[in-house]
Computed example of a mutant assay.
Amino acid sequence: MSTETEATAAASGAGATARFRENKKFAASTSTERVGALAGRIIKAVNDTVLDEKVTYEEYNALKAWLIRVGEDGEWPLFLDVWVEHSVEEVANANRHGSKGTIEGPYYIPNAPSQDTPATLPMREDEPGTPLLFQGQVRSVAGEPLAGALIELWHADDLGFYSQFAPGLPEWNLRGCIIADDQGNFQINTMQPAPYQIPTDGACGALIAAAGWHAWRPAHLHLKVSAPGHQLITTQLYFEGDEHVADDIASAVKPELVLAPADRADGHGREVTYDFVLDPED
């Protein structure tokens, strides 16, 4: 039986591509004028780069070979989510007054097991890592508690792997949907995740090596928080002191999203409080 440390970029990429096709709407109702404007700008930017940088045929052919490999490895979701999504998210959430959002990333799975607060994410009996109590309240921008708010939480384990994208992990390991109480309060017991490298044995890793970049993301919790009559927020929360908070390869860290956990009084791991403020629906 395979273990999580035997995860490959190709398998992870194929899984991310399949999940995207299953779970996302990708047929935007966009006019031909809008498509023409966007595609035209992208193509012009590429051609301007070729002319400005005097790209050679050898470099051009290397790019073609790499683009083909991105498709073969199923890494378009990874490539776009790492290097492009942060700008799309900035546009999408520019007018919010509540909590800050950031990228979703390629490893979200809907319909995780649901439980009321206080909750414990599904995990192995011997789940490695430091226990973490994550708690807070969900409120409206007017300050009103949002009863029964839904907190979807998922994250990597202590080795940096996600369930359903690495072999050997239980299906819903460290994934869950938690329902807040009648005052919007929630308590979730989990394990503090570890920083990790995005997969480096595929096309994205080849680009990183060729460019001399690093492949690291800081440790983070992924969240989607929602309540009736309010806009869902997709975000990530990071940890103070992580060496990659300042140079996240995905450019997704914002100062408002950095946590400062403290040791628990009972000596059982760490705890942190973070509240979410949701904007009303348009």
Rank of each mutant, 00 (worst) to 15 (best):
G148F: 14
P167S: 07
E127H: 06
D73C: 08
A215K: 11
H222G: 15
A180P: 10
R264D: 01
S2D: 03
G168E: 08
H155Q: 13
I42T: 05
P170K: 11
G269P: 14
H97A: 04
A37G: 00
A147Y: 10
V272Y: 13
L51G: 00
G129P: 14
V55P: 01
L133A: 09
S12Y: 15
A92C: 04
A252V: 03
D266T: 02
G229C: 11
A206T: 04
R69S: 10
L259H: 09
G105F: 13
S31I: 09
A14R: 12
N111Y: 13
G205R: 05
I42W: 15
G15L: 13
Y57E: 05
G98Y: 06
R175W: 09
D116F: 10
E22G: 01
N93R: 13
F20D: 11
N23T: 08
L78N: 07
N23V: 06
T117G: 01
E171I: 04
Y274R: 14
W216P: 05
K54W: 03
Q192D: 00
Q236K: 15
G15R: 14
D182H: 08
A206D: 10
E72V: 04
L150D: 03
A180E: 03
G229T: 13
D275W: 14
E243R: 09
A119R: 08
V70T: 00
G143P: 13
I208K: 03
S99I: 09
A246H: 12
L259P: 12
G148K: 11
Q187C: 03
V84I: 04
S2N: 02
R264Q: 02
P106Y: 03
D181H: 06
V50Q: 02
T56Y: 08
T190I: 06
A9Y: 05
T235R: 00
I249A: 07
S114V: 07
L174H: 03
I109R: 15
E75K: 14
A65L: 10
H268F: 10
G229L: 08
G71L: 07
V91Y: 15
R41N: 10
Y60P: 00
T56K: 02
A203G: 02
N111D: 12
P193F: 11
L257P: 11
A180K: 10
C177W: 05
T49P: 00
W172L: 00
T102M: 07
A16P: 05
L237R: 00
A14K: 13
D116A: 11
D275Q: 08
Y107R: 11
W66R: 07
A92D: 05
R21S: 04
T234P: 06
L132Q: 05
Q183R: 15
T17P: 01
I151Q: 04
T190A: 03
G143V: 12
Q164G: 09
V272P: 13
Y196I: 01
Y162H: 15
W66F: 13
E22H: 07
T190L: 15
E281Q: 15
